Amino acid sequence: MTLNNLKSPKGAHKNIKRIGRGQGSGQGQQAGKGHKGQKARAGGGVRTGFEGNNLPLYMRIPKKGFSNSPFKVSYAEVSLSAIEAKFDSGEVTRELLVEKGLLNGINKRKPIKVLANGELKTALTFVNIDKFTKSAAEAVAKAGGKIETK
Protein backbone atom coordinates (compact mmCIF):
# COMPACT_ATOMS: atom_id res chain seq x y z
CA MET A 1 0.00 0.00 0.00
CA THR A 2 1.40 3.37 -1.02
CA LEU A 3 0.10 6.93 -1.02
CA ASN A 4 -1.11 6.71 -4.63
CA ASN A 5 -3.46 3.77 -3.94
CA LEU A 6 -4.86 4.76 -0.50
CA LYS A 7 -8.65 4.65 -0.38
CA SER A 8 -11.30 5.22 2.28
CA PRO A 9 -13.26 2.11 3.23
CA LYS A 10 -16.51 1.57 1.33
CA GLY A 11 -19.30 3.78 2.71
CA ALA A 12 -16.95 6.04 4.68
CA HIS A 13 -17.27 8.98 2.29
CA LYS A 14 -20.59 10.17 0.91
CA ASN A 15 -20.73 12.86 -1.77
CA ILE A 16 -22.56 15.96 -0.62
CA LYS A 17 -25.52 17.29 -2.59
CA ARG A 18 -24.30 20.52 -4.23
CA ILE A 19 -27.49 22.51 -4.66
CA GLY A 20 -27.82 25.31 -7.21
CA ARG A 21 -24.67 24.53 -9.22
CA GLY A 22 -26.14 24.17 -12.71
CA GLN A 23 -28.32 21.81 -14.69
CA GLY A 24 -25.70 19.06 -14.84
CA SER A 25 -25.82 18.59 -11.07
CA GLY A 26 -29.48 17.56 -11.10
CA GLN A 27 -30.18 20.22 -8.47
CA GLY A 28 -29.89 23.33 -10.68
CA GLN A 29 -32.57 25.85 -11.76
CA GLN A 30 -34.81 26.04 -8.65
CA ALA A 31 -32.40 23.96 -6.49
CA GLY A 32 -35.08 21.57 -5.27
CA LYS A 33 -37.36 24.33 -3.99
CA GLY A 34 -40.01 24.23 -6.73
CA HIS A 35 -41.35 27.45 -8.28
CA LYS A 36 -41.27 30.71 -6.30
CA GLY A 37 -43.44 31.20 -3.24
CA GLN A 38 -42.73 31.69 0.46
CA LYS A 39 -40.99 28.33 0.92
CA ALA A 40 -38.59 29.04 -1.97
CA ARG A 41 -37.20 32.24 -0.43
CA ALA A 42 -34.14 32.48 1.79
CA GLY A 43 -35.30 32.20 5.39
CA GLY A 44 -38.79 31.46 4.07
CA GLY A 45 -41.36 29.12 5.48
CA VAL A 46 -44.09 29.28 8.09
CA ARG A 47 -44.03 28.62 11.83
CA THR A 48 -45.21 25.37 13.37
CA GLY A 49 -49.00 25.23 13.56
CA PHE A 50 -49.54 27.91 10.86
CA GLU A 51 -52.66 27.22 8.79
CA GLY A 52 -52.65 29.97 6.17
CA ASN A 53 -55.62 32.32 6.63
CA ASN A 54 -57.25 29.96 9.15
CA LEU A 55 -57.18 30.30 12.89
CA PRO A 56 -54.69 27.62 13.98
CA LEU A 57 -55.98 24.56 15.81
CA TYR A 58 -54.17 25.40 19.04
CA MET A 59 -56.04 28.72 19.13
CA ARG A 60 -59.42 27.21 18.15
CA ILE A 61 -59.71 24.59 20.87
CA PRO A 62 -61.18 25.70 24.18
CA LYS A 63 -58.83 26.41 27.04
CA LYS A 64 -60.57 25.76 30.28
CA GLY A 65 -60.03 24.09 33.57
CA PHE A 66 -57.08 24.01 35.88
CA SER A 67 -54.10 21.71 36.05
CA ASN A 68 -52.43 21.26 39.39
CA SER A 69 -49.42 19.47 37.86
CA PRO A 70 -46.94 22.35 38.35
CA PHE A 71 -47.66 22.22 42.09
CA LYS A 72 -47.87 18.44 42.47
CA VAL A 73 -45.45 16.97 45.00
CA SER A 74 -43.71 13.85 43.74
CA TYR A 75 -42.06 11.55 46.25
CA ALA A 76 -39.04 9.28 46.12
CA GLU A 77 -40.54 5.90 46.99
CA VAL A 78 -38.64 3.35 49.08
CA SER A 79 -40.07 -0.06 49.94
CA LEU A 80 -39.78 -1.74 53.33
CA SER A 81 -38.25 -4.82 51.68
CA ALA A 82 -35.39 -2.69 50.27
CA ILE A 83 -34.84 -1.06 53.68
CA GLU A 84 -34.92 -4.49 55.37
CA ALA A 85 -32.22 -5.74 52.98
CA LYS A 86 -29.84 -2.80 53.55
CA PHE A 87 -30.34 -1.94 57.25
CA ASP A 88 -29.54 -4.25 60.18
CA SER A 89 -30.49 -1.91 63.00
CA GLY A 90 -30.36 1.73 64.10
CA GLU A 91 -31.68 4.81 62.35
CA VAL A 92 -32.92 5.33 58.82
CA THR A 93 -32.27 8.86 57.52
CA ARG A 94 -32.07 10.48 54.08
CA GLU A 95 -28.27 10.50 54.24
CA LEU A 96 -28.10 6.79 55.06
CA LEU A 97 -30.61 5.92 52.31
CA VAL A 98 -28.42 7.77 49.80
CA GLU A 99 -25.25 6.17 51.17
CA LYS A 100 -26.71 2.63 50.92
CA GLY A 101 -27.86 3.28 47.33
CA LEU A 102 -31.63 3.31 47.88
CA LEU A 103 -31.93 6.91 46.67
CA ASN A 104 -30.08 8.10 43.60
CA GLY A 105 -30.30 10.83 40.96
CA ILE A 106 -33.13 13.33 41.41
CA ASN A 107 -34.60 11.18 44.20
CA LYS A 108 -31.85 12.41 46.53
CA ARG A 109 -33.63 15.79 46.68
CA LYS A 110 -37.27 14.66 46.63
CA PRO A 111 -39.31 14.09 49.78
CA ILE A 112 -39.31 10.42 50.81
CA LYS A 113 -42.29 8.09 51.07
CA VAL A 114 -41.99 4.61 52.56
CA LEU A 115 -44.17 1.91 50.97
CA ALA A 116 -45.21 -1.33 52.64
CA ASN A 117 -43.85 -3.71 49.99
CA GLY A 118 -42.38 -6.65 51.86
CA GLU A 119 -41.98 -7.21 55.59
CA LEU A 120 -39.95 -5.46 58.23
CA LYS A 121 -38.48 -7.73 60.89
CA THR A 122 -35.88 -5.42 62.48
CA ALA A 123 -36.72 -2.56 64.81
CA LEU A 124 -35.62 0.60 62.98
CA THR A 125 -35.99 4.26 63.89
CA PHE A 126 -37.06 6.42 60.94
CA VAL A 127 -35.81 10.01 61.37
CA ASN A 128 -37.19 12.90 59.25
CA ILE A 129 -38.82 10.69 56.61
CA ASP A 130 -41.66 12.66 55.05
CA LYS A 131 -44.44 10.12 54.50
CA PHE A 132 -45.47 6.55 55.26
CA THR A 133 -48.35 4.54 53.89
CA LYS A 134 -50.73 3.35 56.62
CA SER A 135 -49.64 -0.26 56.24
CA ALA A 136 -45.95 0.77 56.27
CA ALA A 137 -46.43 2.70 59.52
CA GLU A 138 -48.22 -0.31 61.02
CA ALA A 139 -45.41 -2.64 59.90
CA VAL A 140 -42.78 -0.37 61.53
CA ALA A 141 -44.76 -0.28 64.78
CA LYS A 142 -45.30 -4.05 64.66
CA ALA A 143 -41.54 -4.66 64.25
CA GLY A 144 -40.89 -2.47 67.31
CA GLY A 145 -39.54 0.50 65.39
CA LYS A 146 -40.30 4.23 65.75
CA ILE A 147 -41.13 7.07 63.40
CA GLU A 148 -39.60 10.40 64.46
CA THR A 149 -40.58 13.55 62.60
CA LYS A 150 -39.07 17.02 62.74
Results as ranks from 00 to 15, higher is better:
10 K>V: 11
16 I>E: 13
141 A>Y: 08
21 R>H: 14
32 G>Y: 05
18 R>I: 08
34 G>L: 02
58 Y>H: 01
138 E>C: 09
147 I>F: 03
69 S>F: 03
50 F>A: 14
12 A>H: 08
91 E>I: 14
117 N>Q: 14
44 G>R: 00
9 P>K: 06
53 N>Y: 10
78 V>E: 03
52 G>S: 07
56 P>M: 02
114 V>F: 02
136 A>G: 12
47 R>I: 04
138 E>R: 05
20 G>Y: 05
91 E>H: 02
130 D>R: 12
36 K>E: 03
103 L>E: 02
52 G>H: 03
137 A>S: 02
64 K>A: 04
46 V>K: 00
42 A>W: 12
13 H>A: 06
24 G>P: 06
121 K>V: 14
121 K>E: 09
94 R>Y: 04
142 K>Q: 12
9 P>L: 12
33 K>W: 00
67 S>Q: 06
64 K>G: 07
69 S>I: 09
98 V>S: 07
8 S>K: 04
40 A>I: 10
8 S>A: 10
31 A>P: 13
110 K>D: 00
149 T>M: 05
53 N>R: 12
34 G>C: 04
38 Q>L: 05
38 Q>T: 09
26 G>N: 07
50 F>L: 00
123 A>S: 15
96 L>V: 14
76 A>H: 08
58 Y>V: 06
119 E>R: 09
107 N>R: 14
32 G>S: 06
89 S>R: 13
93 T>K: 15
66 F>R: 07
124 L>H: 10
23 Q>G: 15
43 G>Q: 02
37 G>I: 04
56 P>N: 00
76 A>F: 12
48 T>Y: 03
114 V>Y: 02
72 K>V: 11
107 N>L: 10
100 K>S: 13
27 Q>T: 07
77 E>S: 06
52 G>F: 00
73 V>G: 13
124 L>Q: 13
137 A>I: 00
104 N>E: 06
147 I>Q: 00
106 I>F: 13
19 I>T: 13
61 I>V: 15
69 S>Y: 15
71 F>I: 08
126 F>A: 09
11 G>K: 04
54 N>I: 06
87 F>M: 11
55 L>M: 09
67 S>W: 01
32 G>T: 01
65 G>P: 08
99 E>Q: 14
114 V>S: 02
21 R>L: 02
19 I>C: 11
102 L>A: 11
58 Y>Q: 13
15 N>D: 03
44 G>M: 00
51 E>R: 14
116 A>W: 01
54 N>A: 04
59 M>E: 02
59 M>N: 01
31 A>V: 12
72 K>M: 12
113 K>N: 10
33 K>P: 09
20 G>W: 05
92 V>H: 04
34 G>I: 04
65 G>H: 01
52 G>M: 03
144 G>M: 11
106 I>T: 09
53 N>S: 03
43 G>L: 00
29 Q>F: 11
146 K>Q: 07
145 G>C: 08
117 N>E: 06
19 I>M: 09
7 K>R: 14
27 Q>G: 04
